[in-house]
């Protein structure tokens, strides 16, 4: 548990929550009365992020790439086009790139300047992705960050860190775990954790908790 996390989640929750609830309601009321926003549209956006757009979208893409070599080829060549062809709730932005992990090369994604993240395929970023601890350390000492997640890579694996400093968005294609021969796309998608698609985790091994 670090200070950043404690701060976000408990330190001043009581006072900040009530203060922020009122403050944001005031802002929404002003912008609605001014005619700029429609509360029903805001409801629809919140609902989409709570119920439709999340890491399951990315997991299905990864599982398909594991089972369909032609899709994998298209995904690595032009992820925007390959993903758009699958049809998702939220139209994927024009600048998505898939990064393939191999035994020799591990990819990891960060945004040191703010919190750029491939929303369309992974949903909203978790608090840790937006934390100062992750943003500061991922580019300087990625293996120690991986250790925070309980991940240890072989010493000779190359670690490529991608700092999302423009509008390009990156999706990591994790390695397919051993022991998954013959599994269906749906079964495989269950093994694809969100963190494995950011590069701070590995895909789950069948039977492991």
């Amino acid at each position: 548990m670090n200070d950043d996390h404690r701060h976000d989640d408990s330190h001043d929750h009581g006072s900040e929550l009530s203060e922020m609830q009122l403050r944001v309601r005031a802002l929404e009321t002003v912008l609605t009365e001014k005619g700029y926003v429609d509360p029903a549209a805001l409801d629809a956006i919140v609902d989409a992020y709570e119920t439709k757009i999340g890491p399951r979208n990315g997991a299905r893409i990864v599982a398909k790439a594991w089972t369909d070599p032609e899709f994998k080829r298209r995904l690595l060549a032009d992820a925007t086009a390959a993903v758009r062809a699958l049809g998702h709730e939220s139209r994927v932005g024009d600048h998505l790139t898939a990064l393939e992990n191999t035994p020799k090369r591990h990819n990891m994604v960060v945004c040191t300047l703010c919190s750029c993240y491939p929303w369309e395929v992974l949903g909203l970023p978790p608090v840790w992705y937006k934390s100062a601890a992750y943003r500061s350390r991922a580019v300087k000492d990625p293996r120690s960050v991986l250790a925070d997640f309980g991940v240890k890579l072989p010493d000779d694996t190359e670690v490529l860190v991608w700092d999302s400093t423009a509008e390009s968005r990156y999706l990591v294609l994790p390695m397919r775990p051993a022991g998954t021969v013959g599994m269906s796309e749906d079964q495989l998608a269950e093994l694809v954790s969100r963190d494995s698609m950011i590069g701070t985790g590995l895909a789950k091994t069948p039977g492991a908790h």
């Binding site: 548990m1 670090n2 608090v127 840790w128 500061s136 350390r137 580019v139 925070d148 997640f149 701070t200």
Partner: peptide, 13 residues
């Protein structure tokens, strides 16, 4: 923030 020290461990929730 890239490279700044002292922000501690990354703590997934």
């Amino acid at each position: 923030m890239g490279g700044t020290d002292g922000f501690g461990q990354v703590a997934p929730e």
